[in-house]
Amino acid sequence: MQAQAVPWQGRYPPGDLAIWIFILAELGAFAAFFGAYAITRMNHVALFNEYQQTLNSTAALFNTFALLTSSYFVVRAVAAIREDDGLSCKRWIWAAIAMGGVFLLIKGFEYAHHIEAGVRLSSNTFYMFYLSLTFFHFMHVIMGMVILAAVAFKAGRGGYSAAEHTGVETGASYWHMVDLVWLILFPLVYVMR
C-alpha cells in the first residue's frame, strides 16, 4: 500500500531514462501522424466523415477498455514489486499481456472485416490514414507485449525486488505510452467529426 500512498518523486521519471528518450521519439512520431490526419481532413471533411461511419466504434470502445485495463494491471504490478511481492507482480503483468492479446484479437477481426470488404491503403485518403495509423499502433502493442513478457519471465525468476525493479518500471512506462497514444487515436479516428 505504501507504493500507492507515496507517489514517485524525483527529477527523473520511473524506469530507465533511455526508455523515456525512446518514448518521446515515439510520441513525436504519433503527434506528426495525428497532425497530418487533422490537417488533411480539413480539405476532405465529407470524405472523412463518410468513411468514418464504416468503422466499428463499438470494437474500438472495447479495445480502449482492454488497453486501459491492461495499463491498470501494469500499475498494480509496479505497486506489487514496490511491496517486494514478485509473485503478484508477475501475475499482474501476465494479466496485462492477456488484455493486450484481447486488443490484438479485436483489432485483427476489424482488419479482417475491412480486407474482406476490399479496403486497401489506396482505397482513399481516409483509409490510408486509418490503416497506417492503427497498424503503426498495432505493431507497438505487439512490441509492448514482448517487453512485458520479458519482464514477467524475469519477475517469475525472482529477478526483481522492492530495492531493484527498474526493469518493471521501464516496461510499464513503455506500455502506458502505447495506451496513451490509443487514447488520442480512438476519438480522433472513430468519434470526432
Binding site: 507517489p7 514517485w8 518523486q9 524525483g10 527529477r11 527523473y12 521519471p13 520511473p14 495499463s71 491498470y72 501494469v74 500499475v75 509496479v78 518500471e169 510499464a172 512506462s173 502506458h176 505510452m177 495506451d179 496513451l180 487514447l183 488520442i184 480512438f186 476519438p187 480522433l188
Partner: peptide, 21 residues
C-alpha cells in the same frame, strides 16, 4: 475528454505527477 484521459495516464499511471523539472 481525450486530453484529460491522457493527462490522467501520464500523471497517475506513468508516475509523472511527482517528477520535478
Amino acid at each position: 475528454f481525450a486530453l484529460i484521459k491522457g493527462w490522467l495516464v501520464g500523471d497517475f499511471f506513468m508516475g509523472l505527477r511527482g517528477v520535478r523539472g
